[in-house]
């Protein structure tokens, strides 16, 4: 199995610094410059206080599985050698601490399918994907 066939992220002008940090194996979230709430994905305004001021902050990278899908067909030809593949939706701990959500789609490494359950504690890991263009993916592994 290789990740070379994965679609490459179509980053935009808001998200480019976030993807650059991922390639350096750092998981960032934005932090509102006025009310302090963290947010993800990258965007220009806080949807609580509407402040346009923000900074990047390094995340601890820990979270819990909220939901998941096990894909039994390759939805793109480049994914054929990964079937069946699992996609998880992870709720970052730092969002929960602010009565808010920081949700990340991702996949799992070093896990046994039988372990998968809502609330499973996970932590972010980074996998470099070669190819054209090279990229890096945030993935998740069970926290023990």
């Amino acid at each position: 199995m290789s990740l070379d066939g994965r679609p490459r992220p179509g980053e935009d002008r808001d998200s480019a610094p976030w993807w650059k940090a991922v390639r350096e194996h750092e998981l960032l979230v934005q932090e509102c410059g006025d009310c302090g709430r963290p947010r993800f994905p990258a965007r220009a305004v806080c949807n609580r206080c509407r402040s346009l001021a923000w900074t990047w902050r390094r995340s601890r990278g820990t979270g819990r599985v909220y939901s998941w899908v096990v894909n039994h067909r390759a939805f793109l030809p480049g994914l054929a050698d990964e079937v069946p593949y699992t996609v998880v939706l992870v709720r970052l701990d730092e969002g929960a601490e602010h009565d808010d959500d920081l949700l990340f789609y991702g996949d799992l490494v070093d896990f046994d399918a039988a372990e998968l359950r809502e609330g499973l504690p996970v932590e972010a890991v980074f996998t470099d994907v070669p190819g054209e263009p090279a990229t890096t993916l945030v993935r998740w592994r069970p926290r023990r």
């Binding site: 994965r6 679609p7 490459r8 992220p9 179509g10 980053e11 935009d12 998200s15 994905p41 909220y66 939901s67 998941w68 899908v69 894909n71 390759a74 939805f75 793109l76 994914l79 990964e82 593949y85 996609v87 939706l89 990340f104 789609y105 991702g106 996949d107 809502e118 990229t135 993916l137």
Partner: peptide, 26 residues
């Protein structure tokens, strides 16, 4: 090419059955 897709597509997650499956599981 929508805002959300860049955070999902690299994991092979973008088609409607996948999106509804995630909600159905929840």
């Amino acid at each position: 090419p929508v805002f959300d897709a860049q955070y999902q597509a690299p994991y092979g997650h973008f088609a409607p059955p996948q999106q509804f499956a995630m909600a159905a599981r929840a």
